[in-house]
Structures are given as structure tokens and as C-alpha cells.
Simulated assay, not measured.
Amino acid sequence: AIIKSKPSGRSGRQQAEYLAAELNREDETWKTKARDLKEEVLRLRQELVLTKLLSKPNNSAGAGEEHHLSESDSGCGTGSRERAISEHTRFLQNLSGLLQLDGPALALSGEGDVVWDSVLHLLSTVVDAYREAGGGRLLPQPGLLIQASQVVARVLDQRGIHQRPPVQCLGQSEDSLKELVDLLLNNSQLNKVGEVQSNTPLICGLLRPTLVRLLLSNINHLTQHLRDTCQVRERQQPVDWARYENSFYLFWLLEHLSQAGRWKCGAENQDLLAQLESQVLPLSEEFPLLALYMWRVTALLDPMSAARN
């Protein structure tokens, strides 16, 4: 059928490749339309949540606050990705502000899925922006990315703003964090992406242990790579200098996490912390600065380690 339907001057293989490309384009078009429709449905659900909260009799925000929220910057005039980040950030900011204003009186009932959908959409959009920036595309406004991450952290720390998260939501958020850490560690464009990413940590109680585990695990993999490189020099195994340099962003994040609310490493991450601590002396001669950071982080996350050493 392909051979019979091909135009003159085009081989059967060329016709098959052309039809396959057309199908792929149509598939991408439908995927884009479906994604846009999902975004629109979520936006309408967000507006409904805010309207319900503002219409409650005990709401002290009043009509003036409602007007202020409805007239907030929607992100129009920006790129489609920046607009999506801006809209989800705006909703979470408004929601957080309302609950902060009226406290438990405005606690959500049955709307926690809207909050989680907004958080997951925002996280995935931010990850997409960093991934594409690592591939050479223009990074959205750094201030917008930092603001988005800070809003997510504030929302997930705020009591009464979300219901107990489903396992699926936690899994998706952990996947987003994992990709963010991977992009930060393996990014070769430090000045373009790394500095922005290192200033957008999700320092929230709900995801903090997960983020610490991801950071410690990646640093441990790097230190093992460095030890192997030092021990088998005759094989001329090269040092991955990009990952080495980027690891200091991970140390910065661990320092920041450890100092947020005087939080310390939990039992679930003690094995990773002990593994990191055991690498300090073996690497201190070849990589003294890295070893110093390793010792500092272990001391911050586990003060007893500093006493032992």
C-alpha cells in the first residue's frame, strides 16, 4: 500500500519514512493539546479553591484581597514555560497567604489533591527548564525559578495547606528532586545553570530527608570514583572534573539543609553519612578541599561525628 501510494520520484522507503514522520508530528500535536487541556483544567480548579476560601464567612481577607488576588500577574507575555511556572507559583502564593492570614479557619477540606497537582506540575516544569538549559536552550528568569522553589518549600511546610500526600505524589516529587540533583551534579555549564539551581533548594520538612539522601548518595558515588582514580592510576582512569566541581554545590545545599531549623540527619540516612565520613581521610591528601567539606557536612548533620574525630 505504501509503494502504490507513493508519489513519483520518491522511493518506497522514503515514503514510509515520510508517513512515519507525519504520524509522529500528529502524535506530538495531540500530546501538546492534551497537556494544554490538563493545564487549563488545573488552572480552573485552582481558581475554584481560591474562590471557595475567599467566600467563607470567617475570611478576613475581604473583597479587597479578592480583587488583589484576581489581578495578580498571570505570566502573560512570557514564554509558555515561564507562564506555566508563573501561574502555578501565583496560585500557591495566594493559597499560602490566605491560610497564613486566617490560619486553621481556612484549612482545606477535600482540596489537597489540587495543591499536590499544582506542586507536582510546578516541580516538573522547573525540572524541564533546567534540563533544556543544560542542553543549550535559554534558561527562564532565574528569579522566577528561585521564587517557584521557595513557594513549594513554604507550601509543603505550612500546616493545614495540604492533606496527607498520596504515595504516588511523594514518588513523583522524589523523582523530580532526583533529576534536579542529577542535572546539578552532571551539568557542564556551571555559570549558566549551577548557580541558579544551588539557590533553589526545596528546604521543606516533608521532602528534606529525601533530598538529603539524594545529595549524600551522589556525593558518595563521586568520592568512590575519586578513590578508584587514585588507586588505579596505571589504568589512566580520568577524573570527572565537571562532577568534582559541581559537587561543591551539593555540599552547599547540605550545609543549608542542616542549618534550616537546626535539623539533623535522621536514622534513615545514617548509613550514607557514615560512608561519607569513612572517605574523609583516604581523600584528604589528593583532594584536601573536598575532604574538608566532607568533614564539615558530616559534623553539621551529625554533631557526634565531630566529637569522635
Score class of each variant (00 low, 15 high):
Q46V: 01
Q100H: 15
L214H: 00
G112F: 03
A242H: 10
L54P: 02
A129L: 01
D117R: 01
V151I: 13
V127P: 00
V115L: 06
L98G: 06
Y293D: 07
E71S: 15
P142R: 04
L253D: 05
H121F: 04
S80F: 03
L23V: 12
E65V: 08
M304K: 14
A148R: 02
S96E: 08
R296E: 11
D157I: 02
A1F: 13
I161V: 15
T32V: 01
K52M: 10
L139T: 12
E39P: 00
I146F: 01
L92M: 09
E66T: 12
R296Y: 03
D240Y: 04
Q259K: 09
A61L: 11
E179S: 04
S284R: 09
Q150D: 12
T51K: 13
E28M: 03
A34L: 10
P165E: 07
E111H: 12
T200Y: 03
S72Q: 13
E71N: 14
T29F: 04
P238G: 05
V196F: 07
R208C: 08
A148H: 01
L48E: 13
R164Y: 06
Q259G: 02
Q93T: 12
A107N: 12
S198V: 14
V152H: 03
A1I: 10
A129I: 00
K33V: 08
S124F: 06
L289A: 11
E234H: 15
P209Q: 09
V280H: 00
L202K: 05
A133H: 06
N58G: 14
V114E: 00
G194S: 15
E66H: 08
D36R: 03
H162C: 06
S70Q: 15
P288Y: 02
R137M: 11
T229W: 04
A107H: 10
D27F: 07
T32G: 03
E195A: 07
L290P: 02
Q15A: 14
L145D: 02
S8G: 13
R164I: 08
E82W: 07
D36E: 09
R227F: 05
L44T: 08
T229D: 04
D117C: 01
E255F: 05
P282M: 05
M294R: 00
L54K: 01
N94L: 06
E195H: 14
A307V: 15
G135M: 11
P303A: 09
P57N: 08
E245H: 14
L207Q: 08
R208Y: 07
L190H: 13
L226T: 00
Q236D: 13
S173Q: 06
L214T: 05
S60C: 06
L37R: 07
V41E: 08
L156Y: 02
R45V: 03
P209T: 09
L276A: 05
Q197S: 10
D27S: 11
L211T: 02
F251S: 09
L301T: 02
P140M: 05
N199D: 11
E65P: 01
S188L: 11
Q147A: 14
Q259V: 03
M294S: 11
